[in-house]
């Protein structure tokens, strides 16, 4: 035995969270496509069907609206339900259930009806899947009152946030990134939770604050390393949940650094990046020493050709050069 902690993948971390929680709480039911014997398109339920059986792992045909609505309804009657959209892109078929039903009922019922449903889906571009399998519209959900939105970037957070999600009394959007399932990281065995609304400072620095979620955290951290070689100390903040958002950590960081950049795989317009900048402009105006910057995907659907998609998406190079320019004044 070494002191070094065990390393597992992001995907395995999610499975571990599910195994622990489903073992702990017999009311949990998991609904989705290919999540039974197949173990999930992204291996995100691998092994669970053998353990928990058909009753609790409900494979469905292709019917996101029905799956999602049934999960919400199950959550309204004493179950904890997870519905797996697999690709977040497919949740569009079920949006009315998410926005009109799941998000509203706890509040409208004056808190009488609990809606402990976790709506899971993987966002983002991976291996040039093309526009319809590459969306990153996690911020839409944060825009909707009544939804919590977790966007894990590491295996540790994937496990800890999913376990926390499965203990909420109101709906949680659990939005992984397709490109992170095979990334590895240290994850403790057994019980631990990652709280919602508590950002993680991935890297400390005094010159500029970079805020990012999901896979963009990796990218921001790589950019911060490159900037370090130029003598620029970037602080990387990963909010981990965008609703609730840990405003204090972001504001404290910008109070220290005076500069803010947001890296986002979603386009800039009306998005998470604008929200973070609005937060700092409103509540941290006197902290700002430079105009904040957004390093986001360009405002086009994800093109297929790698040459085009690479141009369209944020990259380490883009982050480095934008931040460098900010520091120049």
């Amino acid at each position: 035995m070494t002191n070094k902690q065990r390393e597992i993948t992001y995907g395995e971390a999610g499975v571990e969270a599910l195994r622990e929680e489903m073992g702990r709480d017999p009311s949990i039911v998991y609904i989705g496509q290919g999540i039974g014997p197949r173990g999930g398109n992204f291996r995100q339920t691998r092994g669970l069907w053998k353990e928990f059986g058909d009753g609790r792992l409900r494979d469905t045909g292709i019917c996101e609206l029905g799956e999602t609505g049934l999960a919400i309804g199950a959550a309204m009657n004493g179950c904890r339900a997870i519905v797996d959209e697999v690709f977040l892109d497919f949740i569009l078929e079920a949006m009315t259930q998410v926005i009109q039903q799941a998000a509203t009922i706890h509040y409208l019922s004056n808190g009488k009806i609990k809606v402990p449903v976790v709506i899971r889906g993987a966002m983002g571009s991976v291996r040039n899947a093309g526009a319809q399998h590459a969306h990153s519209f996690y911020a839409w959900f944060a825009h909707t009152p009544g939804l919590k939105v977790a966007v894990p970037s590491t295996p540790y957070d994937c496990k800890g946030l999913l376990k926390t999600a499965l203990r909420q009394d109101t709906p949680v959007m659990f939005i992984e990134h397709k490109g992170l399932y095979n990334s590895k990281g240290e994850v403790p065995e057994g019980e631990f939770l990652v709280p919602f609304g508590k950002a993680s400072v991935r890297r400390e620095g005094s010159d500029v604050t970079i805020v990012a979620v999901g896979r963009m955290v990796q990218l921001a951290s790589e950019a911060a390393s490159a900037l370090q070689d130029e003598g620029i100390a970037a602080e990387v903040i990963d909010p981990r949940t965008v609703a609730p958002l840990d405003r204090d950590t972001i504001l404290r960081s910008v109070a220290k650094t005076g500069r803010l950049a947001v890296v986002d795989e979603a386009p800039a317009a009306c998005g998470f990046s604008g929200e973070v900048i609005a937060l700092v402009s409103t509540h941290g105006f006197d902290s700002l020493d430079a105009p904040p910057r957004r390093i986001c995907s360009l405002h086009v659907p994800n093109p297929f050709s790698p040459a085009l998609e690479n141009e369209m998406m944020p990259s380490v190079t883009k982050v480095v050069s934008e931040v460098r320019e900010m520091l120049r004044g």
Binding site: G258, F285, D286, S287, L288, D289, A290
Partner: peptide, 13 residues
């Protein structure tokens, strides 16, 4: 007669 520059909020504060 001297030139006036914009200043960041942080600099102003």
């Amino acid at each position: 007669g001297s030139v006036k520059y914009p200043a960041s909020p942080r600099a102003r504060a």
